[in-house]
Nucleic acid binder design. Structure first.
Lengths: 156, 156
DNA sequence: GTCGTAAATGCAAGCTGGTTGCATTTAGGC
DNA sequence: GCCTAAATGCAACCAGCTTGCATTTACGAC
């Protein structure tokens, strides 16, 4: 039972998919659902396991790949961990004008986050903290690169 | 060919190995040599390739594993890259005096660094810049963890 | 609603990047 | 120089994806 005034949190993501001309299918819905259930990263295998026999690993794989390509997920890897992690990118509320979007590079409006890994149990959780702009500037100066992306993980 | 007054930069590392009761062998010397040649990270395969037929991949693998276990190398992984990277840890000459923030029960005295990856060519290089202590404190507060390790990568 | 087509799915095979068991060789202490 | 533990090469093995293909399904055109 869905209360009509409680917007389904999946909707904006589904819309993004449709806008990207990616069909909304049961598998993609399932995978996205897991990401929405809790603010926690998944790996191909943990996700596949968590979905039980609901779908094949290759389908989970393709759902992950597609959601990542559509800009809904970000990917990261941790030293010592063999598997690749994915986590949901929380997009800002500002919806781009549909007419304006085209083949250009994806608007970088996501509020990405970083991760902290428990030394003992390996559990990964999110942080709302990000690299300060000052540091970013220093990095650009020191390297001569224009930074477009960064990843930061803590262990403790 | 060696000028006696020019200290071999490998010596301190070899000493560290010997102190750790790790035998100094041609393969480990070769691998370490590559890390000393330039301040650049290597993967198992790039290193193996770079060494030509000089030794087997499994030997490179074991050399990497051993040097990592001995604390001479640090390991990291990049999103999108399949291989695991290793880079030389430059140890400080003077052990850190206790007192400052971040001095934990275990004295981790390595001067680690972070990485920047070229968007176009995939080349990885080092940065001497690190996460500011203030951010670290905020992370500890927000997470309730005591941070023992962190990784930071930029792309641009 | 029915049809047609492009896309999604499951299955199984295949590939990459490690990782390991084992017989042989070698570094380093005596 | 001899001895023994450790290092090496080789080949087999394994995990974690990744892909080809036949089948099924979503969705727009009638």
């Amino acid at each position: 039972m869905k209360r009509p005034d409680a917007a389904d949190p999946a909707l904006p993501y589904l819309d993004r998919l449709r806008q990207g001309k990616v069909k909304v299918t049961p598998n993609r819905r399932r995978v996205l659902g897991r990401f929405l259930q809790g603010d926690k990263p998944w790996t191909l295998q943990s996700l596949h396991r968590s979905l039980g026999g609901e779908c094949d690993q290759s389908s989970v794989y393709r759902a992950l790949t597609d959601l990542h390509a559509a800009g809904l997920l970000e990917e990261f890897r941790l030293p010592g961990e063999r598997e690749t992690f994915f986590s949901l990118i929380k997009h800002r509320e500002t919806p781009r004008a549909p007419g304006g979007r085209g083949s250009g590079p994806k608007a970088r409006t996501h509020a990405h986050h970083h991760h902290i890994v428990c030394q003992d149990c390996g559990q990964v959780s999110h942080l709302d903290i990000c690299v300060p702009a000052g540091l970013m500037g220093k990095v650009e100066d020191a390297s001569g690169f224009r930074i477009t992306e960064h990843h930061l993980e803590f262990k403790g």
